[in-house]
Design a protein around this nucleic acid. Sequence first.
DNA 1: TATTGTTATACTCTATAACTATA
DNA 2: TATAGTTATAGAGTATAACAATA
Lengths: 134, 134
Amino acid sequence: MAHARDVSALLIQAGELGKAAFHGAAASLELPVPVARALLLLDVPAPMSDLAERLTCDRSYVTSITDQLEDRGLVQRVPGVDRRVKLLELTTKGKRLRVRLATVVARESDVLNKLTDDERVTLARLLGRIVQGR
Amino acid sequence: MAHARDVSALLIQAGELGKAAFHGAAASLELPVPVARALLLLDVPAPMSDLAERLTCDRSYVTSITDQLEDRGLVQRVPGVDRRVKLLELTTKGKRLRVRLATVVARESDVLNKLTDDERVTLARLLGRIVQGR
DNA sequence: TATTGTTATACTCTATAACTATA
DNA sequence: TATAGTTATAGAGTATAACAATA
């Protein structure tokens, strides 16, 4: 039997380890963790509120993260059709760095390299179930 | 195929969601998240350095968390056989609150309630693999 | 009136470095 | 000399509230 409290603690701890490994990768590119996370999520231009949801954080914090991305010349604020909305769109430099980051994360992720390919697929499926649907 | 970078991002995001749910449970008992996490871990008396490892944090931060636990009368510092070591031992009040917290976490964890029992077992096994072995 | 993003501000989380007391 | 815990301090991460622009 897997008590919810144990799984919950495990989830938090594994998340922490994952973040620590991610921190190493991001730091090697001189990126703070939240900035790096946003960069990875910006596969495709997205409204800032969208990012807030996917980062599980407040909209005001997305403003701060976006400022940092912009300061580094990695992203542009583009007005949406609804003029209240701003789309975040990676610059060429941003796209390039995003690819490099993804590479480094993959290589550096000793956390995940403890699992076999099959296990990683299973884990991804279960985490996906948790993450999506709000 | 499950790219390590995707699983990594998922792991962080799921950890964040898990922490958010945990935050709700802990807040209902007026406990900050790190304090609540420590409380759950103190099933059995443990050296502070041990806790640091399991919380993936610095020893100095454990001092701070312990102070907060002590202020609430939830824990006692007990000298170990090696006199440098201090064991953290829950008080009666601490043990009682620990049980209540575990209950609330289990009930409130809509994050994990999205999974079936079987899936939770599988998830626990995979996360356990990630977490242990350093 | 409700929603998106911004600003100012403050709080929480966490690490670093230097210290102490034991070993 | 090395290790466990403490102290002081600073920095990163993050939320809250009030606001502007647009819907």
